[in-house]
Design a protein around this nucleic acid. Sequence first.
DNA 1: TATTGTTATACTCTATAACTATA
DNA 2: TATAGTTATAGAGTATAACAATA
Lengths: 154, 154
Amino acid sequence: MPAPRGMPIGLRLAGVARDVGRAFDDTLAAAGGSRPLWMVLLALKSGAAASQQQIADHIGIRGATLTHHLAGMEARGLVVRTREPGDRRTQVVRLTDEGERMFGAMAEAAHEFDQRLRAGFTKAELSHLDLFLRRLQENAGVRGAALPGDATPP
Amino acid sequence: MPAPRGMPIGLRLAGVARDVGRAFDDTLAAAGGSRPLWMVLLALKSGAAASQQQIADHIGIRGATLTHHLAGMEARGLVVRTREPGDRRTQVVRLTDEGERMFGAMAEAAHEFDQRLRAGFTKAELSHLDLFLRRLQENAGVRGAALPGDATPP
DNA sequence: TATTGTTATACTCTATAACTATA
DNA sequence: TATAGTTATAGAGTATAACAATA
């Protein structure tokens, strides 16, 4: 993936993200997982998601897609889904011991990968990078992190 | 896609790339195309690829995957493949008039998208961003753009 | 009626393996 | 034997639409 001067920034970003993403996928695969699996586990552990719909929104997929992943995870014995007594429409997703083990293994792999990725970057540089990424995201028209003064019509 | 402090840089990158990529895909779809189609057209037009294998390498996919895309493009009347008289194993891929029209439409859409993405960025910032991306790519272990002094064993 | 999640189905992109034709 | 590309098949991830159960 050469990066010629003047290459569209979107393609550049996509290319780098693909390369980095593949390396990350390899890392997760070596730990027995995958990216979406890791995203779901992260969302579950962070506790920042009450309903499945919120988990799906959190990681940027559809509810049906999440069901798909959860079904696979349940088949692998990583999670258990049980109906909430209070509101029997909702499912309570709980990590099994095996799920906890998997989370631990993937967390370690992900952390090592992240260390590798950050190598040579100063804190200031990482802040700049983060800001640049945020600006790209906003320029692409992503909602939900709108700045004050954003004049985009509803 | 919230971006908490201390979020792994790889996931951050992947998230932004996905959001930006989806917006770009929407743009290309409105012009009647898709991302891989655009990549193939770009590679063809840039003339930087002699064989199909080189095109595939250029855009980071396998030969069989490229065949898949080219077959689809040929079915849509965008390209024609003919055997080279000199070496009849190789295929010469040529854009049809319809293919040229499609390229033009997608190029315009892609350019507008790129303008939108770059909005508010100075040249210096874009350079910094590009450098950051390159460093991430290298840290992820991508070969082919190795720096002088790279001490990674073969 | 509205909400929560599931099922059924399908699409896109990608890959590997086996194959054909040619060199 | 080696190379260029194709065919056949498969798998992962995602999506939409229709549905069931519950509120």
